[in-house]
């Protein structure tokens, strides 16, 4: 656990300046992942810039386009319980509540949630090679114990998964990520925010060095009528997903007008398949169509031994979650069969 300087920023401009002044400085928000990584010697910041006191980053506000802006410093728990989110974006509330524990949700910020690092055990173990931790050293997970690892979008260099639940819902909702850096502001579509590992698994996302997430925008369409978040894991609560599915449907009677399906626990980023969603548009919302959509989503899925089961599990989860989304009151947490 290296020594670091602790600095506080009262506004965004100061925070960005402080970050650029000193190499290897990091923003500190909730700290739930950063402090854990630092204690394991997986990150060694020379300075931390505390952004918790920046005015205006910790709020939720409605936008003129009908959407909602989530401040980067707004806490995960406060977001899940906010009346606007509960009523208009219940899929997001459900996904947040499926993740972590009450204590961690009280601490973790919305911006920080996007920046979680993988919980791959090889990444966390400094005694073994890992391309994410030490680029070029190798990936022991491919031939190792890979029960929790990815089945989609993997590369020869990395099969780690992205651990967030909240981000699976944000992906399904087509959220936008607003960031600010020394070169100004920009907005990143959620699908473009996180990266696939490719040959640079050390990079989790497309943020430039020194850029700060300031807010996350949710578009007007909240799918409050037909949604479901299903999370399957080794423990009933407080465990990362083996497979999770966020399903949001817009229905016209039995016909699907619009469909969003995002998967967690299966790839280096929340997994969307526009091909499967296009297939569902105009079709009946029934088991066989959800099964066909699942086959499209999983057509290139590849197991690495211990995680082969995830392919079959994901298919069943996509079907079940599609059916639960038809009647959101029927959704139950975890592996229990639906009522």
């Amino acid at each position: 656990m290296n020594n670091f300087e602790y600095k506080q920023a009262e506004d965004i401009a100061t925070a960005i300046n402080l970050i650029s002044e000193q190499d290897n400085t990091k923003f500190l928000a909730g700290g739930t992942n950063l402090l854990d990584l630092w204690k394991y010697n997986l990150t060694n910041p020379s300075g931390l810039v505390d952004i918790n006191r920046i005015h205006g980053l910790a709020e939720i506000k409605e936008l003129s386009n009908g959407g909602v802006r989530l401040g980067a410093n707004f806490k995960n728990a406060d977001t899940a319980y906010h009346p606007i989110i509960e009523n208009k974006y219940p899929l997001l509330s459900k996904a947040i509540l499926a993740g972590a524990s009450a204590q961690i949700r009280n601490m973790a910020s919305n911006g920080g949630n996007l920046l979680q690092r993988t919980r791959c055990y090889y990444f966390y173990d400094p005694d073994v090679p890992c391309n994410k931790r030490n680029p070029g050293s190798g990936c022991p997970a491919k031939e190792g114990y890979n029960r929790i690892h990815a089945i989609l979008g993997t590369s020869d260099h990395c099969i780690a998964v992205f651990p967030s639940d909240m981000c699976v819902a944000l992906a399904a909702l087509n959220a936008l990520v607003n960031v600010e850096g020394a070169e100004g502001k920009r907005t990143i579509a959620f699908a473009d925010f996180h990266r696939l590992p490719g040959d640079r698994p050390d990079l989790d996302n497309n943020l430039k060095p020194g850029e700060l997430i300031t807010s996350i925008d949710l578009p007007d369409k909240g799918f409050a009528q037909n949604y479901s978040y299903l999370k399957l894991r080794d423990r009933h609560s407080y465990a990362f997903a083996l497979v999770s599915v966020a399903t949001a449907l817009e229905l016209d009677g039995e016909m699907i007008k619009d469909a969003r399906i995002a998967l967690g626990g299966v790839a280096h980023k929340p997994w969307r398949s526009t091909e499967a969603e296009n297939f569902l548009r105009g079709k009946s919302a029934n088991e066989s169509n959800f099964a066909a959509a699942a086959d499209i989503i999983l057509q290139d899925a590849k197991g690495y031994g211990h995680n082969d089961f995830k392919i079959a599990l994901a298919k069943k989860a996509i079907i079940r979650n599609g059916l639960m989304a038809l009647n959101p009151q029927s959704q139950l947490p975890g592996a229990k069969p639906s009522a």
């Binding site: 602790y6 500190l28 700290g31 739930t32 402090l35 854990d36 204690k39 394991y40 931390l48 505390d50 918790n52 728990a77 524990s101 009450a102 204590q103 961690i104 009280n106 601490m107």
Partner: peptide, 26 residues
Amino acid sequence: DHGQCGACTVIVDGHRVLSCLTLAAT
């Protein structure tokens, strides 16, 4: 000491949090 067990839970400004993942400076 890594936010996994909850033994360090305290209540800060009315919310339960993990004191092992909270820097005193904050």
